[in-house]
Simulated scan of single mutants.
Amino acid sequence: MIRYQLGAGAAGVRWAMSPIHEVVSLARLLTEPQRHRVYEPWLRRRRHRLKDVDLSALTVFMSDGAYRPDFLDPPPPHPEPTFEEGVEALLATPTDQVHAELVDAFRGRSGEAAERLTGSPERTKVEAAGAIMRLSRAAVEPEWPSMRQALRAELLDRALQTSREGLRSVVGRLHPSVEYRESTLTVDTCVDVDSACPDGLVLIPSLFITDRVQCSTSDHWGPAICYPAPGRYLWSRPVPPASLEQLLGRTRSKILAAIAVTPLQTSVVAALVDVTAPTASEHLAVLRNAGLIDTSRSGRTAIHELSASGRVLLGGGPGRGTVKAD
């Protein structure tokens, strides 16, 4: 078990997105696409972009169960860093730190590749950065506006939940392996580590991990946890039941089906159902007045989620609604 000693509690936790983490996690996904069927439609539509991209300098670290060096995706320095900031941090990693992480990554694994990579840590770092930049240009950069929207919505939603319910309740919903009690956040894993967090802990939502969390306990990088973000609507849009479409109309039923997957901002709803933001606002107002959705605000940003009545209408009972994906 990993134990993050927070000390200051909620004040010691911050939330941030990480564009470079999304790229590195996509590389891992590409080595085992059969493991995560939810991404299949998205990957098929982008196969031509990825066909000739050389990722070998990155995927060499993607052996299942092996430690993935932390220098590949450094924790974000602030809530919304750019991809370029992540690459700069990667390239600025001290050579001795890169070497130490490479030794850990290839512990128990022999062979020419392991010797070459650990024997030339600076070259290994530069080649990995090159592969990350190629994958970003090919697959993530064209999709980043919608990915950033999904991650922004997640960060804002978690901030609102924390202010309403407290950190313990919110952390307990990030992943079944994560728990928070008495100023200690624990992750149920096969390793046994105590990690002090004098400068806080970073929680990073990730669009390309679905069934696990990824933990960093390195003194060099500072502690961080990447957890699955509810951005499934990016990969396959929800399809509302036919009966719901007959009752509410096509656009409003699609809006309810999308919000059933995860709380969404108005601009994201508009993009998902192919209408303008003002038109989406009108439909959302009708659904809110009917008691089917709840809306909370942070400044000028509105977040919409299913109400209890909306969940019942979609057949999900008191929990999150149930819809199928196309």
Rank of each mutant, 00 (worst) to 15 (best):
A105Q: 12
K324C: 13
V87Q: 04
P41D: 01
P241R: 00
P198M: 05
A277P: 11
M147R: 06
H36D: 13
S218W: 03
F61L: 10
S206D: 12
V193T: 11
C190A: 13
V53M: 06
F71E: 08
V213K: 09
S110D: 15
P79K: 07
I259S: 07
Q5W: 14
S236E: 01
L151I: 07
D73V: 09
A150E: 10
L248M: 08
I225S: 08
G7Q: 06
C190R: 13
L306Y: 01
D73I: 03
E122P: 00
R137D: 12
K125T: 08
R250G: 01
E141W: 15
S120D: 14
T217Q: 04
S56C: 09
G231D: 01
P79E: 10
L167I: 12
M133Y: 07
L306C: 04
V126W: 06
A129N: 01
E165A: 07
L244Y: 06
H220A: 11
T276N: 02
E305T: 14
A139K: 09
T184I: 13
R37C: 12
A138E: 06
R173I: 00
W221P: 01
P223N: 14
V312Q: 12
P74V: 04
A129V: 00
R181G: 10
L248R: 00
R212S: 06
L6Y: 10
P145M: 12
H48P: 00
L306G: 04
H220K: 02
A325Y: 14
A159T: 05
A16N: 14
L306P: 02
S218D: 06
L58K: 14
T162R: 08
L313A: 03
W15L: 15
A224K: 02
P198D: 04
P77G: 10
E32H: 14
T189M: 03
A105G: 07
Q246N: 06
V171T: 03
S163G: 02
V38W: 03
S183E: 14
A8L: 14
S218K: 00
I225A: 05
R181Y: 05
M17G: 10
L26P: 03
E85F: 02
E245N: 00
D211W: 04
G310R: 08
L135C: 05
D274T: 02
T124H: 02
D294Q: 09
P79L: 03
T95C: 11
Q5P: 01
A57F: 11
S195I: 12
E154T: 11
R35N: 12
C215D: 12
T266Q: 09
R134D: 13
A100W: 05
G316F: 08
V38I: 15
P176K: 00
